[in-house]
Computed example of a mutant assay.
Amino acid sequence: MDNLPLLTIGVTLLTCVFAVIGVHVYSSGKAQREALVERMSHTGQIANVTGRRRRFIGVDRQLRTTKLGKRIERKIAATGLDLTPGEYVVYVVAGLLALYFVVGAIFAPYFGVLAALTGVWGGNAFLNWQRTKRTEAFIGQLPELTRVLANATQAGLAMRTALAMAAEELDNPAGEELRRVADQLAIGHSLDDALGELADRLPSRELVVLVTTLVLSSRAGGQVVTSLRNLTETLEERKETRREVTTMLSQVKVTALAVPLLGLGFLLMINATTPGALDKMTGSVLGQFGTGIAFALYAVGYLLIGRLSRVQV
């Protein structure tokens, strides 16, 4: 018992050593876990080559476990945006709150509610627009892509090697999408599955024709070079046709946007000439119902104009 103080000090020091070791192991394990979660969270998406620090990691982690989060993740993957589902949802919610307070302060609180509901549709429409924009850019690169593939296969390279070479030579978005296809082929995916996922991410008739040509050529053999040369000429002609159609329909698209903007302009005029008129108009259930019907008709007009001006080339 004479050595009790010394024994106590020794046990205390040993406990401190074990505590330090435990903290070190815990911190390193936590860092490895976060790195693993970060890698797994971007499965099916383009790697974050910019090294940007992700925000709202907790929200993103919880959101990915839901069906809504998985659907948002697939949409973001098709757009090529450097966003996580958590960041997208937080930004959309912040935008909805800003719309509600700003529009409600300018017009009336009821219009703030309508603006927030419109913002929910606008968030989804933004992703669809980004996906369409990326698809159009990819379609514009298809003639160059088929030309590179034809040259590579004519030189005796396999289709997998030709796709990897095209991913290095082409600019984005074709370069990113083909790198994703090359990565999938490198880890054991079949050519059919990798190209099929590409066609699902960027749906277009031109890409479906290209994928079908490559898949059939890989299955049954045949003259891939001749098919790709002919396809290159066809894609060049379709590219010019699409450009002409887009130019012809530009005025119709402006009209579709001008129709609802005129309605908002009339509301501003009414509110400027008679202050408080919008508050009185939306102060009753009948006024709110009529205002909702009017906005719904504007939305239907916008959608109908866009639908009628949509030409499939």
Rank of each mutant, 00 (worst) to 15 (best):
L13Q: 06
A164C: 06
A164I: 09
Q62S: 10
R131S: 13
G51R: 10
F56Y: 11
D171G: 08
G122C: 09
P143Q: 09
G10I: 12
A115V: 05
F295A: 01
G222S: 01
V245E: 02
G69K: 07
N271P: 05
R64C: 06
I187H: 03
R307W: 00
Q32N: 14
P173R: 01
A158P: 05
L142I: 10
A174Y: 00
K239E: 10
Q130F: 13
T246R: 15
L303H: 08
L185P: 01
T50Y: 12
A35W: 07
L149Q: 07
Y110E: 02
T12Q: 11
T274L: 10
F295C: 01
Q312W: 04
S204A: 15
G140K: 13
I76R: 10
A194M: 07
R33C: 06
A115F: 04
G22C: 04
Q288T: 06
L97D: 05
G44Q: 05
L163T: 03
Q130L: 14
A94T: 12
L83V: 03
S28C: 13
R33D: 09
A152W: 01
S41G: 10
M159F: 01
L304D: 05
T234H: 12
T274P: 04
L264K: 03
G80I: 07
L228M: 02
A256C: 06
E244V: 12
R61Q: 05
S27E: 14
E136S: 14
G188P: 03
E144Y: 13
T247I: 14
A174L: 00
N124M: 15
S190K: 08
S217Q: 09
P85G: 02
L63Q: 01
L268G: 06
L178V: 00
N3M: 15
G221L: 05
A162F: 01
F295E: 00
L97G: 15
L81T: 09
V254T: 15
F111G: 02
V120C: 12
G51Y: 13
L157G: 07
A35P: 04
L145W: 04
V252Q: 14
P203K: 11
